[in-house]
Amino acid sequence: MGKRGSVVVVAAGLVLALGGCGGGTDEKAGASDGSSATPAPARAPSPELVEWVGDLCASAVALKELRADSTAQLKEIRDPDAEIFAQARALGHLSETLTVVETEQRDLEELGPSGVPAADRLLGAWRKKVKDVVRELRSMYPDLGGEDAVDGAANVDRHVQTLTPPRPDLPGLTKQDPRLAAAYQRAEQCAPGWKPPKGEPSAPPASAEPTGPLPEAADGRNTAACSDGACEILVTSTADVTANGLNVDITVGNSVTFQTPDTIMNLGGQGGVAQFGDTLKVTVVAQNEQGAVLRFARP
Score class of each variant (00 low, 15 high):
K3H: 15
G5N: 14
S6D: 04
V7Y: 03
V9N: 10
V10T: 09
V15C: 04
C21S: 09
G22Q: 00
G22R: 00
E27N: 02
A29C: 13
G30F: 11
G30M: 05
S35Q: 10
A37P: 02
P39F: 11
A40V: 15
R43V: 15
V50P: 12
E51M: 15
S59I: 07
A62N: 06
E65G: 10
E65A: 13
R67S: 12
R67G: 09
S70M: 07
R78M: 13
D81T: 06
I84P: 05
A86R: 02
A88H: 10
L94P: 03
V101F: 07
E102R: 02
R106H: 12
D107K: 10
L111G: 00
G112E: 02
P113L: 05
S114V: 05
V116Q: 06
A125H: 11
W126S: 01
R127C: 03
V133L: 08
V134N: 01
E136R: 09
R138I: 01
D143M: 14
D148E: 05
D148N: 07
D151P: 04
D151A: 14
D151C: 11
N155R: 08
V160H: 04
Q161L: 15
R167I: 07
P168C: 04
P171K: 07
P171G: 12
Q176I: 12
A181D: 15
A187T: 03
P192C: 02
G199R: 00
P201M: 00
S202W: 10
S202P: 05
S202K: 04
A206N: 11
A206V: 10
T211S: 15
P215D: 08
R221D: 13
T223Q: 12
A224K: 04
A225M: 08
G229M: 01
E232F: 06
V235H: 01
T238Q: 14
A239N: 00
D240P: 06
A243N: 03
N244C: 08
G245A: 06
I250R: 00
T251Q: 14
T257F: 05
F258E: 04
T260H: 07
T260R: 02
D262H: 08
N266Y: 09
Q275F: 11
Q275V: 13
F276P: 06
F276W: 10
T279H: 08
L280T: 01
K281T: 06
V282P: 04
N288I: 00
Q290K: 11
